[in-house]
């Protein structure tokens, strides 16, 4: 479970605890739907409290300064508020949806920083979004994925994190972990294949 407080029973939502039987895992999707449907500020604040520190941590890991990270967090959540009506819980997990918005905000921020003369105010990456229409990784898949990450052997999980988020080439990982390059590559492939298998998209590629 993504939350560190997973020992708690599912919390009833502030107003109607319609999904009292649902796992705590789906709550963020419910909150997001509520923000979209009813512009519910309380749900929005709860989403912010959970996701904002995680989005910020992701941004800091990518080398954003403290100030820049907070600014991108703000931009991300303003967009979460504005776009929530388009969010469909059947088609994406809340974590995926928010992560993608944050990722795109970061790309746009980098673009503004590096190239002052480009069309810098336009949120270019919004033209790249497609997640609202398609359903590749539902909340259910993502919950399975999360369990899968937890069950990966620690060395595979660590490699996966390094390869995914850190600005490290496979050869840098190889140097750092003192593992042969081939081993790094094959372990990563194993980890990715395992996750893909769990998400039910285990096509041969």
């Amino acid at each position: 479970m993504a939350s560190g407080k997973s020992h708690k029973p599912p919390q009833a939502l502030p107003e109607k605890a319609a999904n009292a039987g649902a796992a705590e895992k789906v709550r963020y999707e419910d909150l997001l739907v509520r923000v979209g449907a009813a512009k519910d500020r309380a749900s929005f604040v709860r989403l912010f409290e959970y996701f904002a520190p995680r989005v910020k941590s992701y941004l800091l890991k990518h080398g954003a300064s403290e100030t820049a990270a907070e600014e991108i967090v703000q931009n991300t959540f303003v967009t979460v508020w504005e776009k929530a009506a388009k969010y469909n819980p059947k088609k994406a997990a809340a974590s995926t949806w928010i992560f993608t918005i944050a990722r795109n905000k970061r790309i746009d921020a980098l673009r503004r920083e590096k190239f002052v003369d480009v069309n810098s105010d336009a949120p270019a990456m919004e033209n790249a979004s497609y997640t609202a229409e398609e359903d590749y990784a539902t909340a259910e898949d993502v919950n399975k994925l999360n369990t899968a990450i937890d069950t990966l052997p620690p060395e595979q999980a660590a490699l996966l994190r390094m390869a995914f988020f850190e600005e490290k080439s496979h050869s840098a990982i190889s140097r750092e972990t003192h593992l042969p390059l081939g081993t790094v590559k094959s372990r990563l492939r194993l980890a990715l294949d395992k996750l893909r298998g769990i998400m039910g998209t285990g096509d041969a590629r």
Binding site: R54, V55, K56, A93, W97, F99, V142, F165
Partner: peptide
């Protein structure tokens, strides 16, 4: 989309700031 789902999960399972 698979990688984004993975990204969302890795983001959430990391240490919050």
């Amino acid at each position: 989309a698979e990688f984004e789902a993975l990204g969302g999960q890795l983001m959430c399972s990391g240490k919050p700031a």
